[in-house]
Design a protein around this nucleic acid. Structure first.
Lengths: 232, 232
DNA sequence: GTCTATATGACGATAGAC
DNA sequence: GTCTATCGTCATATAGAC
């Protein structure tokens, strides 16, 4: 009995490790060849096994995509959640921070992760795989992230940084359009540029100013368009 | 001699017609199955020919994607160009129009076409096909469209609707992020909703207000956030 | 010139031996 | 749990019928 449970646990752990290894190779392939460029044969080749052996761990290629979707949603959710906690804690210590500063920090964390993890980003925010729809379980962390984001905006509204009359639903919707818009254009037009040098990631500051002006509570201390005025 | 040129012309015309037919079927398939779901076998099946026969007209699947990219870029370019001409002519007749109204018209034309032609939109604004890069010739109309858009913003700036100090390069960049951001979210999250009922296409008005407030010349006549205030 | 017949190699997927 | 063998489909290439 005792001799049975131990190897079972070990086998189980080993199985989970193998699954993680499959996912790691899949991400590496998708990063270079795009989400649609993933092939089970290439994963197996890199692991030194035959393609059919992968079916022990995943019943289909779509199931593999589903696991990758879940993994990506969990990871970006964690990154954003950590930043969000820091943001609110920091706001307690330095309440004089402008809404522009606060939102730019939050935006940069999301956009940086997205452009630096193009495989997950394509899977989460485009529709690159014909017929693939994430399962409810895999989609759950993505929903949780949106809910957390809305709660963060509500908190900012309570603290007087977001205009009192603003609909949080609309704030969240427009925020998502801006953030994923920047990420999509950067990855599709300049995939090699990276966060710091990208033409579209560099637009974040101007877009956040725009957003803050519209949904922020107090008029910005910065003159509208001061960034451009400098260039004249 | 005379008897030779006539059938050559006819044959040439017939060839072009066949090419158009191939492209039409390709668009239909991509519309239902996504860009990556296109298969030459399915095109041939629908045309009642064998797959290798397609290679008479296109040397490879990538060449077919290239022709589709060019077609899509020309079509949306034409749609936007027509609207742009109408917009400026209308502005001569009714110079009292606000920048919000003018831009919302322009935005609606682009976004409506994009969500109603998801096959072209995916090809033009995402990266759904591993290894596919449009040729310089196919890309040309897309560049022309961006140039025309910049010239339109310059004209609006000359007419005093866009703030004098604004960099047209930045105006165009942020405009593209907003428009393709809305389109991408609508097509990826709610592909079946259509322009009029979509959750993200419905955000256009608010996003244009935001944009106009930032880059427009005179303060808006509408109270900031009046749309939301109404909902209270 | 246009299309078919045929073949190649890669793919996702399944069945069954060990 | 991994293998081999196999299936059907895919994009692609070539040779040849008409």
């Amino acid at each position: 009995m005792t001799t049975e449970t131990v190897p079972l646990d070990r086998r189980h752990r080993r199985r989970l490790e193998t699954i993680e290894e499959v996912l790691d190779h899949a991400v590496a392939i998708m990063t270079t060849d795009g989400v649609a460029g993933l092939s089970l044969g290439e994963i197996a080749r890199r692991m030194g096994i035959r393609t059919p052996s992968l079916y022990v761990y995943f019943p289909s290629k779509h199931a593999l995509y589903d696991a990758l979707f879940a993994r990506g949603a969990r990871e970006i959710g964690q990154v954003v959640s950590d930043e969000s906690a820091k943001l609110l804690a920091d706001l307690d210590k330095r309440p004089q921070r402008s809404i522009e500063e606060v939102l730019l920090d939050a935006a940069a964390v999301f956009v940086r992760w997205a452009v630096e993890h193009p495989a997950y980003t394509q899977l989460l925010y485009w529709r690159p795989v014909p017929g693939f729809q994430p399962s409810a379980e895999s989609f759950a962390p993505a929903i949780a992230m949106v809910e957390a984001s809305k709660q963060r905006f509500e908190e900012l509204q309570r603290r007087g940084l977001i205009r009192a009359g603003a609909s949080i639903e609309e704030v969240q919707r427009d925020w998502v359009v801006l953030m994923t818009g920047v990420v999509t254009r950067q990855l599709a037009n300049e995939p090699q540029a990276g966060f710091d040098k990208g033409r579209f990631t560099s637009a974040l500051s101007a877009l956040i100013d725009m957003f803050a002006h519209h949904y922020g509570a107090q008029p910005s201390t910065r003159t509208r368009g001061s960034r451009h005025a400098r260039q004249r």
